[in-house]
Design a protein around this nucleic acid. Sequence first.
DNA 1: CCGTAATTTTGCAGTGAGTGTGATATTCTG
DNA 2: CAGAATATCACACTCACTGCAAAATTACGG
Lengths: 212, 212
Amino acid sequence: MPHPLGLRERKKAQTRETIVRCAMELFAERGFDATTIADIAEAADIAPRTFFGYFPSKEAVVFHDFEEMFADFETRLRSRPKDQTAFEALRTWIVEMITRVEENGETAMEDQRRCLIHDTPSLDAHERANMGRFHELLTECVAADLDVPADSLRANMVAAAAVAALESLRELKDDDTSGPEQAIAVMDEVLVFLVGGLDALRATSEAGAASD
Amino acid sequence: MPHPLGLRERKKAQTRETIVRCAMELFAERGFDATTIADIAEAADIAPRTFFGYFPSKEAVVFHDFEEMFADFETRLRSRPKDQTAFEALRTWIVEMITRVEENGETAMEDQRRCLIHDTPSLDAHERANMGRFHELLTECVAADLDVPADSLRANMVAAAAVAALESLRELKDDDTSGPEQAIAVMDEVLVFLVGGLDALRATSEAGAASD
DNA sequence: CCGTAATTTTGCAGTGAGTGTGATATTCTG
DNA sequence: CAGAATATCACACTCACTGCAAAATTACGG
């Protein structure tokens, strides 16, 4: 048993990577909309029909690692120790994510991808849908932390601010030498904001209850 | 001069309304994806090609009033009195919007539209892109209010929470007899949260500056 | 090493959104 | 009512994406 995976699995993984690499190169060269499936297939040396055996749509190539990433986050979030808040879990995860990207020297690639997404409307919409999933998941867990219903406004706001910070981190990264330090600083700032806001809400609701 | 608008303009407006009405009926009956442009064209008694003279895409029909709405909000926001915050302008606008919809008895139609958007991925993505425009605009104006750069984290968070409230309002509306009162209550809660959060940030930055 | 079953790749035909173009019909202007 | 402006339409096209069945590839038992 010399191989951890059979020939089939290895070839599939390899083809998938080839598709991603070729597609991203073409997108960078001539833009997302100006690149056809046929172009990608030719560059990756596969039949156009085969592309759809690997990805359900052209957009999916750009977000090829999202499902994995999201699943990882969800697992960590749901299996976090009882004394850890959802926000803390998010912070830890983000720091690890950034560290990993920098270790692998993928910063340039990530930047390029962000630009592509930013100036292609259909990709931008897709990205927002992805962020929406983060938002939903976070709302649910934040609600549990705060011991309020999952559709409550404050859980929703807290999650929204956290997601905003996440987006803000992406834009910040190409500014200068980032490292995880800046991310930590940002998340700390968010935490102060959220705790302050929640305290204020608690204060007014207590005052309201006292005056009743 | 018996007519405020020429025959042409009137006919165009009428056709546009017919398209919207027919399309929304079909969407409600058989779903968005199961309805083709050809179906809509037949129902509205126009040529399929003519549809695209009125709307750039099938999705655009569902959001037929967004551009107008957004432009209205932007105007109000940018021309608001100097002593009014962006958040106050948002609150006023929302209350007017809700009041108008209820006066016209369009609540049922709005609900139906929300459902359609919610369970059609492509529409959901489009909706999120629209909300993104609100977010950007609000971020810019909130930043001006707070006297911080437009790409600063706190302006972004404040705007994100405000947008979250906006979304939260839509889901809340079909619960029971809503009226503008609930919207006002929600916005007040958001305001408490935001002010509390911002105060906390100010407090820590002052403490940090003092300890330096 | 070989046959066969499982799986992957591929070609082909088709649906549906959206665009460019030029002809035809309608409305506006003088 | 003639002619300019504009709206509608038919036609042909590109491209994303799907279903299907044949062909190629890989895995496995003997």
